[in-house]
Design a protein around this nucleic acid. Structure first.
Lengths: 226, 226
DNA sequence: ACCTGAACACCGTTCAAGT
DNA sequence: ACCTGAACACCGTTCAAGT
């Protein structure tokens, strides 16, 4: 089930918090959440499981730190667009792509609520909402809505990606099966979902995600005008 | 760490899938995600760990089933309001409260992406969006935005609740600490977050959540008019 | 100060054996 | 058909002992 994708790293330099986090991200990306164990990690680092505890308190802290490294890099890369609105969209797409590329981030973020990774995102969105000219009284609601929406989509999307990965099928097949499942739902109880089965097969996650961002931005503008 | 809150159930009737799920929900509510083990569960049910596997395939399926039981009951209770808009708000608040009362649902839902519990919510929202008169071409985006937002807020909120529970502090203290942490952030790098530290302490999760729903509903209306 | 690796107290899951 | 409970192959974490 778990197959090593790299030979154990040579052990030139000393162990460090950063090297551990880097190796953890690699392991999470290649073998998934279940693949990150202190034994596998220490093998990759050519050391013993106990050594890691000198640098990191426990597995929870390791996951949050791995999450934070990815998110910090992502947000830094999308920091300045042409307009505040364009920057919000860039941040959103950046987060979407990051959570798609590292599907373990979705659940890691849930366990990191209120910690550095989520605060980073909150701050990045907040600065743009401010630049957008939203009055002080409406900023909290506007930022919260965008923040939660981004985390919500990212989490669900990552979960889909992960379950496709676990079953070793591609996006096409995954959507095909999901679409078939929707089409097979009971007509009386799930009329709406059934009617969208075809759209599910052909939809573009990324475009739909952006449409939602625009919906919220539209709501923010409408509210600011009233 | 894990303390039993009930004496083992008498074993009058036979084991069944439903009784197992019910006991699992009780265990999750009282001892958290980490408290749900097949050993603890079988003790509660006065049987052996192996017995459960006759009725349920594995732990993942058990979590999804527990999740689904809660969500089905929640959605059924909020099915019909005065107007479609009121019903959407009722559904949203119902989900918010359910995820607050059962904080384990947040991460369970991430592992249940695309399965029954999330489809139920999708359908419930979809029926109301349809009743709202949103044109066919915009329904997918509208429902997706509401759906992801509800799951996103619920997940983050549940995570906060859980971490407060784990540290055995109340909402007041939890928010106080978080607010102090925000106020102590580096002024140059986190100006926005810092400036909202006070609002964090005094905010009302539930009201803010509804404000976000209204923002999205506002965006949906604005889009329908253009 | 930093690393080693055996040992501890758990897990989820299986499966021969029972009724 | 349904249940039992010992056994298996793992975990995260600790800690005496080393360098």
């Amino acid at each position: 089930m778990v197959n090593k994708t790299r030979s154990p790293q040579r052990r030139g330099d000393a162990l460090s918090r950063d090297r551990i986090i880097e190796a953890a991200i690699g392991l999470l990306d290649s073998t998934g959440e279940a693949g990150l164990t202190f034994r596998a990690l220490s093998e990759q680092l050519a050391t013993g499981p106990g050594a890691i505890y000198w640098h990191i308190a426990n597995k929870g802290e390791l996951l949050v730190a791995a999450c934070d490294a990815v998110i910090a890099a992502t947000l830094a890369a999308c920091a300045d667009g042409e307009t505040p609105e364009a920057t919000v969209r860039a941040l959103a797409v950046g987060m979407f792509d990051a959570m798609d590329a590292h599907p373990w981030i979705g659940s890691a973020l849930i366990h990191a609520a209120g910690q550095l990774p989520t605060v980073r995102l909150f701050e990045s969105i907040g600065q743009q909402v401010q630049a957008l000219g939203v009055p002080a009284g409406g900023q909290w609601a506007a930022v919260s809505a965008l923040w939660h929406y981004i985390l919500g989509v990212g989490g669900q999307n990552a979960a889909n990606r992960r379950s496709a990965q676990a079953r070793d099928i591609g996006r096409e097949d995954f959507l095909g099966e999901a679409s078939a499942a929707w089409a097979a739902l009971d007509e009386a109880r799930y009329p709406f979902t059934r009617s969208l089965a075809e759209q599910l097969r052909n939809h573009d996650d990324s475009a739909d995600f952006l449409a939602g961002i625009d919906l919220i931005l539209g709501g923010i503008k409408a509210q600011a005008q009233s």
